[in-house]
Design a protein around this nucleic acid. Structure first.
Lengths: 139, 139
DNA sequence: TACCCATTAGTTTGGTTTGGCCTAACTATA
DNA sequence: TATAGTTAGGCCAAACCAAACTAATGGGTA
């Protein structure tokens, strides 16, 4: 590997390590270090689809309704979600995320935010602008 | 959030997305998209400790020996690891990773490498050097 | 030297818990 | 009667365990 790439690898490896530390911190602050990959995916699905019902979430995730009931019961126990009955139709129940649930659904974004804060503290404005300019060319 | 941080967030979010795509690609190239978080942690432990035995791995991961036997049997089925008897002491068996196993243990690093390659292709040498210089100040 | 026995390494057996999935049957509302 | 969600009961895989087992080693002693 050329030296330039090697150096780039090292600095990014360090950045990713910082982000991962932020990520772990967020999960353990919420006491939810043992969330599974699946559970996070469900939380994201709920977060993305506003006022989602059990039937709708079953459709979205391609699972049966009992599976959704079970999953939501788990989330309620974890204080990540709660039920809200529709005022118009007594059969319908909306699934909402709690503050904690939203935090978990967006844990990666939140960790990135924390990392960015650290970055901004370590750099001056000119450096940040330069960084943005260069990295824009990659995406 | 200040505009500067917002922009920084966007460019890094995009970079992380690229890295995650590389990550997924690596797992599916190996046909191991369903590896669990635990399994990856075990693979890393094996990769880090050279010529590790069952007893030693049980110590390192703080699990019983039957748990290790079970886990290694799974890895052998997945073609991630194999057993090698000690030539000196017939009771001792070393755990080794296959090429695939090493790839999985270092999937994150490999994904980062692929991302860096994409980056280097998109930037010129001066930009890369500048990037390294700025990011060094963060770590 | 040869045998026996305690020790060590790993495996097998049989068990638990948790997550994640299902169908079929149920309840309540529309 | 149709729809929304729940309950009951079941399945399988992952991840753990203790206890009992097998095989190899390495003394110690007859």
């Amino acid at each position: 590997m050329p030296a330039r790439e090697e150096h780039l690898f090292e600095v990014f490896d360090r950045l990713i390590a910082i982000k991962n530390e932020c990520s772990s911190a967020i999960f353990s602050e919420c006491g939810l270090s043992r969330l599974t990959v699946k559970q996070i995916a469900y939380l994201k699905a709920i977060d993305e689809h506003h006022d989602v019902t059990f039937s709708r979430l079953a459709e979205i995730t391609r699972n049966s309704k009992p599976t959704i009931t079970e999953m939501i019961n788990r989330f309620v126990r974890m204080e990540c979600a709660y039920r809200q009955k529709s005022p118009d139709d007594g059969r319908i129940v909306y699934i909402h995320l709690t503050e904690k649930g939203r935090m978990m659904a967006n844990a990666e974004q939140n960790a990135l935010n924390r990392m960015i804060e650290k970055m901004v503290r370590a750099l001056d404005e000119k450096e940040v602008d330069l960084l943005i300019e260069i990295l824009k060319k990659v995406g």
